[in-house]
Design a protein around this nucleic acid. Sequence first.
DNA 1: GCTAAGCTTTGATTTTGGTCAAAGAAAGTT
DNA 2: AACTTTCTTTGACCAAAATCAAAGCTTAGC
Lengths: 233, 233
Amino acid sequence: MSDCSTCVVRNRAICASLETDELQLLSNLGRKRTIKRGETLLWEGDPAPVVANIIDGVLKLSVNLQDGREQIVSVMYASDFIGRPFGKESPYRVTAMTDAEICVFSRSSFDSFAKEHPDLQNKLLQRTLDELDRAREWMTMLGKKSATERIATLLVELSDRLTVDGCSLTTLYLDRFELPMDRQQISDILGLTIETVSRQFTRIRKAGIIELPDRRTVIIKDRSRLKALAEIA
Amino acid sequence: MSDCSTCVVRNRAICASLETDELQLLSNLGRKRTIKRGETLLWEGDPAPVVANIIDGVLKLSVNLQDGREQIVSVMYASDFIGRPFGKESPYRVTAMTDAEICVFSRSSFDSFAKEHPDLQNKLLQRTLDELDRAREWMTMLGKKSATERIATLLVELSDRLTVDGCSLTTLYLDRFELPMDRQQISDILGLTIETVSRQFTRIRKAGIIELPDRRTVIIKDRSRLKALAEIA
DNA sequence: GCTAAGCTTTGATTTTGGTCAAAGAAAGTT
DNA sequence: AACTTTCTTTGACCAAAATCAAAGCTTAGC
């Protein structure tokens, strides 16, 4: 259905582990779909009927608490893999933060395909290990960093991971980019309140480290100082 | 070298995915060793020469900052798997919190064994996914919970995961157990200071929810209230 | 048993970030 | 364009946890 040969993330997604003919088989199982900003792909507690590759856009994984608050536990970008293969339901809600394009597989067909392709499974394992490293880095941020340090850390990460149309393979850092999330979502990522986020943005802006031409746009004026702010102590 | 047939974690560790004859092969690659409380098995940035199963005891994974502070990003118990198969160096320091017994494999020999045993790799993937879920639960704690909630959460987790001699397969909750870590380490797990940890212990004790006969022993007097405290809002 | 060293607890004070409230700015609607 | 709604910023005040400081307990060594 989908045509993997023209896929912009073909060489970065887990599909990169497959040979052309295997890719053809997987391709028959998947289908492209678009998903609008704010739309939820998977609900926590769902039997998690699908897994997916992100082709373009930004999605969040969140834990949603009784009282309506949420903690965002991961932000996923182009070429990232979404969902919980083998087993349980999804413990998180998966929601698009921007309009996005994804390549979806039913869990069952993906699982059986993966079982027969150890290379794919190996790739999946390595990705999961990388994701675990990222989660633990984030834990360190939440456990030890101040509000300013958290904002700076997020901006550095975004300028690294937000690629132009999901096309960049190089380690290009963007000095100007659109925030894929609003202030509330930033606070839910960083474990802060929206007011604190706003105040810290103002602080870093007044210090001449960034510019904020409008609510969604960030221009990094002094990357080294921003990176220094993001570091601990 | 090691004799897997008598191993107390044989049915819970990743080895559970192997048939008897395969286990024999793996067994030839591994060797048991003991490790003293405080001893470090792997340093961050190491080429990570080993992976291991925990047979008995408790180990921590930590990120250590320039100024000597540390964030503990995971606490590992009997039957857990330690190390980073396939690829990079260990991003964390791995240190024993109690005297421990582990079953060690050289990374290279484990990697090639795993490559030829998809079942083992599948088990490894599922464990890593579980570990990721745990890390994200911890993130939610660090991002959203108050000091009291964090302490209560840790105590509930410990009473669940600290099994007697690594032997219990049942979902037994311990009402009396030894803390495998000191107050400083608790604060490094929970993202608090040692003083705050101490004050919260006192608070929960005075509320009659726990008893602390000595610095290392915890007796849970009212589990349901402790669990309620651990829940968010 | 006495002393020293290292944890742990408690107290006083300060700081950071949260809460409450209101004003300002964009974006969407009629 | 005027109006509503939503998002963001700013200000005043408050609370939770951090910091600074000192006193109590354990444990270990002599």
